[in-house]
Each structure stands twice: as structure tokens, then as C-alpha cells.
Nucleic acid binder design. Structure first.
Lengths: 99, 99
DNA sequence: TTCGCTATTCGCAAAACAACGAACAGCTAT
DNA sequence: ATAGCTGTTCGTTGTTTTGCGAATAGCGAA
């Protein structure tokens, strides 16, 4: 392994997931979704003390990381955990943390 | 629980650990330390393609998050995992990820 | 005291992040 | 066509992060 690629793809992916989890609001959203299957953006913004636009940005970050996905149910959007990537994240952190 | 404190202390702490892990260099350092007990800053900077000062910043971030600690062995510094907080991180992520 | 070493801190620039309000987009009902 | 709803995007501001080289700090040996 050359000096230029010391970090493995696994470490990069784990870091990406960790980055997405690195804000309390996103952590809250992920915990809620992993416990109750799905929720609506509107419900979240009713509960959280942040602007709708800020929540939207956080949801976008979680989507970009691949941890959640949203389905349009006009006029609302239903968010849920992306099971495939959630499983991958579970594996990566299990291995990384040794649990 | 009032609207102003929706996020729990646990979520905040987990997010803090996640933030510290949210960069590939720090992920690399943590993985190395969890596998081999300890290492020297100098050895890390020989391996990683980043400036010494940049590595120092990353090590400081991991220390600030409480995940690692350093012992001075003049003229070098030996870094190792902070076992107590590592255990806490294991617990928090185990619970959060459901593994 | 000086030198040489390791490692950190400082100052800088650029990029990324996080908050917001306003404007916009898409949809459905009227 | 318009109104009302939900949710996103844009532009802005302020803060934090990330990279670096230069300067500094601490230590031990000579």
C-alpha cells in the first residue's frame, strides 16, 4: 500500500457515516427513524427547535450519506432508514469499535 | 421534555464521538490504536501523507473528544486509546445502531 | 549555553458547516 | 387560474474545519 493511499476504502466509508452522525439533530433523526420505521418531515420540524430550512439541510446530508431515503406522499415526504446502508454502517462500526 | 431540549445528552455525546470519527485520518489513527495498543506521533506522520502540523491538529481533536490520550516520553509522545471513553463509545454506538 | 530533536501552536487561506428568512417548486383542491 | 399546503433551494452570515509553512516550546546531550 503506497503512502498515498494509506487509508482504506472501509475507513473512508466509516468516516463518511460518522460525519453524517456528527450533529445532534441528525443523530436525533436517525434514532427516531431506527425506532419507529418512518416519519414525516413536517412532524420532525414540529418537534425540533430549528427552522424548516435547516432541518431540510440536515435531511439532505443524511440522504447524501445514504443513511435515509424519502418517499413523496404529496404534499408530504415520508422519510425512513435506508436498510441496506444501515446494515453496512452497523457492520463497519461493529468491526471498527470491536463490539 | 420541552421543545428546547428534544435531543438527549446521550445523542449529544454520541454525535460528539461521531464528529471526531468523521475524518478518514482520525479514523485511521483510531483503528491503528485500537489494534496495536499505542503508537508515536512521529511514526504516524511518517506513514500519513499530511503535514506534521495537520496530524497534530487531528490528534488534538481526538484528545478533545476524549477518545485518545498521550503520554510524554521525551522527546516523543506515545498515544493510546482512552479505554474508559472507548468503552462508552462502544456502548453508545451499540445501542444507537442496534447491534 | 547551544544544538538537535520531536511536537505543538500560530496565522493564514480556502472549504465546509450550520443557522436563518425569503423565494421557489410541486402538488391538490377549488 | 388561483390558493393553500409541504418541503426545498438560494443567498447570506457567522463559525468551524482542514490544510499548510513558519515559529515556538520543551527536552536532553554535548
Amino acid at each position: 500500500m503506497s503512502l498515498k493511499t494509506v487509508k482504506t476504502d472501509k475507513q473512508i466509508r466509516t468516516a463518511r457515516y460518522a460525519k453524517a452522525m456528527g450533529h445532534p439533530v441528525r443523530m436525533y433523526v436517525l434514532e427516531l427513524l431506527s425506532n419507529q420505521s418512518c416519519c414525516y418531515s413536517g412532524d420532525l420540524s414540529d418537534e425540533l427547535p430549528i427552522a424548516k430550512s435547516t432541518l431540510s439541510q440536515h435531511l439532505k446530508e443524511l440522504k447524501d450519506a445514504g443513511l435515509i431515503q424519502g418517499e413523496i406522499e404529496s404534499p408530504r415526504i415520508k422519510y425512513c432508514i435506508n436498510k441496506e446502508n444501515w446494515k453496512e454502517a452497523q457492520q463497519l462500526f461493529k468491526q471498527f469499535l470491536g463490539i
